[in-house]
């Protein structure tokens, strides 16, 4: 029986793509410590990767002095991750659908779409003092019930 008390971890990284792997390791190990299996960890790590890549590239504009804060909480039924950058924020509703015919051959614009396939909740909020928080959640223990394709 996995422990029922939530566990959490936080890591702050500078805006370098190679640092994404550090955050990956923290969240991976946290989920392992909570007794979560690799097949349920994998989609979370993939969404985390996309979210941090956006925070570094679009939020912080690749400025290595700006930081990205990652916090993760894992309980037996839910994993929740927040990714906070120091950027100007954006309007997620204005992001075009990458599967629309006119966007299919574009070389970018699929990250948020992929996160939505992987996670149950993907929400952006723009902080009043600047910065964007991305909230990612995925229910755990439901792998058998999921029927949709997972990327």
């Amino acid at each position: 029986m996995p422990d029922t008390k939530p566990v959490n971890a936080a890591i702050s990284i500078t805006s370098r793509f190679e640092n994404i792997e550090l955050a990956e390791r923290v969240v991976h190990d946290l989920m392992v410590s909570a007794g979560i299996g690799e097949e349920e960890i994998a989609p979370v790590i993939r969404a985390l990767w996309e979210g941090i890549a956006n925070a570094i590239r679009h939020g912080n504009g690749g400025d290595p002095d700006r930081r990205v804060e990652i916090e993760a909480t894992v309980s037996p039924a839910l994993v929740r991750v927040t990714i906070t950058d120091q950027g100007a924020g954006f309007d997620v509703a204005a992001v075009p659908d990458p599967t629309a015919a006119e966007n299919l051959l574009k070389p970018s614009g699929r990250g948020i779409f992929i996160m939505r396939q992987l996670m149950d909740r993907v929400e952006f909020s723009n902080l009043s003092g600047g910065g964007t928080v991305l909230l990612l959640e995925r229910r755990l223990g439901t792998t058998q019930e999921r029927e949709h394709h997972e990327v």
Binding site: E50, A53, L105, P107, S108, R110, G111
Partner: peptide, 14 residues
């Protein structure tokens, strides 16, 4: 492969 890798494949194709 992440979304940017997928994007690279699309760019290669076009």
């Amino acid at each position: 492969v992440d979304s940017s890798g997928i994007g690279e494949l699309v760019a290669a194709y076009t």
